[in-house]
């Protein structure tokens, strides 16, 4: 009897968590503070010097949706003026994940040419939303 209740409860909780995560997935979040602090040097090293904005994708080896995100972002960068895509693997760099306050992968940071984070997206980004959020930072 207890087992049946636990099974039912677990499935209900998991379903709620699933819907909540799905709703949050791909949402664009503006940077929370106004300090305009630069991202750590390891991330700045990945920036494309010729681009206004670099989409820095944070991945791990064990992240299934990272692959899908990589395809989406590299395509987006190729089609958009002033936009570049870079991939930073955090698998063996938990200290960098901590410095960036990243808990899940993929997380994508949009970083300008000065190295300042403009916004970030958790999960697989949605193309239209991301482009709209980036528009003020891109040429044209």
């Amino acid at each position: 009897m207890t087992g049946a209740l636990v099974a039912l409860g677990t499935l209900l909780v998991a379903a709620v968590v699933g819907f909540a995560l799905r709703a949050r997935d791909g949402r664009v979040r503006a940077r929370e503070d106004d300090t305009a602090a630069r991202v750590p040097a390891e991330v700045r090293a990945a920036l494309d010097a010729g681009a206004r904005v670099t989409l820095v994708q944070l991945s791990t080896t064990f992240c299934a949706p990272c692959r899908q995100t990589r395809v989406l972002l590299s395509d987006l960068a190729a089609r958009t003026d002033g936009l570049a895509h870079a991939d930073v693997d955090l698998t063996d760099r938990p200290e960098l994940a901590k410095a960036l306050s990243v808990l899940r992968t993929p997380t994508t940071l949009a970083v300008d040419s000065r190295g300042v984070e403009l916004l970030r997206v958790g999960g697989v980004p949605k193309r239209e939303n991301l482009l709209a959020a980036l528009a003020p930072h891109l040429p044209g």
């Binding site: 379903a15 064990f62 992240c63 949706p65 955090l90 698998t91 992968t105």
Partner: peptide, 24 residues
Amino acid sequence: LAAAFLNAAFGLCLGCETYLLLHR
């Protein structure tokens, strides 16, 4: 069960996405 069901129904892999968290 929660992890398996999230994977089955939503295609979410909790263990993978929170690898960084588990790692810490």
